[in-house]
């Protein structure tokens, strides 16, 4: 009986006093991540849907970005701007901008292979990843969920053989094909547009 008497408070203490427990409101849930490469730097953009207190039925989407010489520096720059920890466990979309190739492409693919990001993340290409994320969506709360839905419908209705989940392309890390999207036109109520496929050979992009 004495053992139980001190065991319960001990468990409670151990359970409660944990510095690494993250409550969901302490996290930024990343729905999509984009990579853009310029002349000398790399830009990482993340799309974060938020539900505000007292407005659980409304969802706001924020886009944050960070730049740096390489992916590590860009991520560090991004995290420094944020008050909460980024959580990639529900990331559904990764976008490669047109400039991403060679070392930047390899670094991005390595980043996506980390344990936190699901292997089933959909990978697409776009002229500008940040613009695709920032433009907003018409049919879904966030681009990270809208674009995979569009691809699923295309595969089902038009029979397009889309193999663009990360694990489907990672085995062919130097030769693969990605769907290409242009940003939505909210003024004319046009969602993000699928405009064809973009091939990558030997780590470099070619437009088809």
């Amino acid at each position: 009986m004495k053992k139980i008497a001190w065991l319960l408070p001990l468990c409670l203490l151990l359970a409660a006093c944990r510095a690494d427990v993250s409550e969901p409101e302490e996290l930024y849930l990343v729905s999509a991540i984009g990579f853009d490469a310029g002349n000398a730097d790399l830009r990482v953009s993340v799309e974060v849907p938020l539900t505000r207190e007292n407005e659980a039925d409304k969802m706001e989407v924020l886009v944050f970005d960070g730049t740096g010489n390489n992916l590590t520096a860009a991520m560090r720059d991004l995290r420094a701007k944020l008050g909460k920890k980024l959580f990639f466990g529900h990331c559904a979309l990764a976008i490669f901008g047109d400039g991403v190739s060679g070392d930047a492409l390899r670094a991005a693919l390595d980043f996506l292979s980390g344990n936190e990001i699901p292997l089933s993340v959909t990978v697409v290409s776009a002229p500008d990843a940040r613009e695709l994320l920032a433009r907003g969506t018409l049919s879904a709360p966030a681009a990270g969920y809208e674009i995979p839905d569009i691809l699923r419908l295309l595969a089902r209705d038009e029979g397009l053989p889309l193999r663009c989940r990360y694990y489907e392309i990672a085995a062919h890390s130097s030769d693969f094909t990605l769907p290409r999207f242009l940003p939505s036109d909210l003024n004319n109520a046009v969602p993000d547009r699928f405009v064809g496929m973009r091939s990558y050979r030997d780590g470099k992009a070619a437009v088809e």
Partner: peptide
């Protein structure tokens, strides 16, 4: 909710985060 957020449905997690604010 506290240790394995990736296993929760996405919108449940978002909703929980919103209501827990």
């Amino acid at each position: 909710l506290t240790h394995h957020q990736r296993l929760l449905p996405t919108f449940l997690l978002l909703s929980s985060a919103g209501t827990r604010g």
